[in-house]
Simulated assay, not measured.
Amino acid sequence: MSSFMKSSIGKKFFMSVTGLFLITFICVHLSLNLLLIVDDSGDLFNMAAHFMATNPLIKIMEPVLALGFLVHIIWSFVITLENKKARPVTYNSGDKVLSPIAPSKNMLILGGMVLVFLVMHIANFWWKFKISHEGLTAVHVMQAGVNVEMENAYALVAGFFKASSLYCIIYMVGAVLLGLHISHGFWSAFQTIGWNNKIWLKRLEVIARIFAWLIALGFAIIPLYFMIKF
């Protein structure tokens, strides 16, 4: 097993698995964030954020998620460096999506940009939710007939979007970069784990592009909503 994990295919396999795991998290995260534009009172978003913060299973998964991000990022650099050493001369990729910045040719660059976006997101939201609690106030929400006190996560997130058009634009750019990264990574992950026959590979490429742009549009529409409405 250890020799498999040290091999090039083993590293790619594990990076593919962590990538699919992170895509699952992104879907959950997007579903929660879309509540920001569904209910302007903030109650739905606050209840969802409160559930995520207090659910024991979510608390267990948080360090697993963090480890998944670290492994995925570190191994992407390792694999890219190994590929460059093995093949110093680049080859023509078959990926025709925005050819000058084709995801298959620039996964490391796109991943680095997504990482910058992730760091900004952690600094502005996660850190305040979990560590400093800066700007967080309490709010009472009726939940199953019970008046529950919880942090007003909606006020913090919505307030940030309302106050900074620049951050809204950066957030939308980050969403597009995330979509580009996923558009190649999604089908490539399935190819690595064995779904690599010609029929399914073509189907997965189409599904990946549709899925990636739905993710990109889903995240981008949130700051756009606040820019237009407020």
Results as ranks from 00 to 15, higher is better:
residue 38 V to G: 04
residue 56 P to R: 03
residue 146 V to M: 15
residue 16 S to H: 04
residue 184 H to P: 00
residue 125 F to Q: 00
residue 148 V to E: 09
residue 133 H to V: 04
residue 190 F to K: 02
residue 196 N to S: 12
residue 28 V to A: 14
residue 146 V to S: 14
residue 9 I to M: 07
residue 176 V to P: 00
residue 77 F to Y: 08
residue 207 I to V: 15
residue 82 E to S: 07
residue 179 G to I: 01
residue 182 I to F: 10
residue 47 M to I: 13
residue 124 N to M: 15
residue 58 I to E: 09
residue 124 N to Q: 10
residue 225 Y to Q: 03
residue 78 V to N: 05
residue 63 P to I: 03
residue 184 H to F: 15
residue 196 N to I: 10
residue 149 E to T: 10
residue 55 N to K: 04
residue 217 L to V: 05
residue 76 S to E: 06
residue 151 E to F: 15
residue 70 L to K: 06
residue 109 I to P: 00
residue 192 T to D: 09
residue 162 K to Q: 11
residue 1 M to T: 15
residue 220 A to H: 04
residue 182 I to D: 09
residue 118 L to T: 11
residue 176 V to D: 00
residue 44 L to F: 10
residue 33 N to L: 12
residue 31 S to R: 05
residue 50 H to C: 04
residue 206 V to E: 00
residue 121 H to T: 07
residue 191 Q to G: 11
residue 54 T to C: 03
residue 54 T to F: 02
residue 126 W to A: 14
residue 150 M to K: 02
residue 177 L to G: 01
residue 210 I to K: 00
residue 63 P to H: 01
residue 210 I to P: 03
residue 109 I to H: 13
residue 47 M to T: 05
residue 164 S to R: 02
residue 146 V to H: 15
residue 151 E to N: 12
residue 62 E to N: 12
residue 13 F to P: 00
residue 140 H to A: 15
residue 139 V to A: 07
residue 52 M to T: 13
residue 94 G to L: 02
residue 80 T to S: 12
residue 35 L to F: 05
residue 140 H to I: 15
residue 43 D to F: 10
residue 134 E to F: 13
residue 187 W to M: 07
residue 73 I to Y: 12
residue 134 E to W: 11
residue 93 S to N: 10
residue 186 F to D: 01
residue 40 D to E: 09
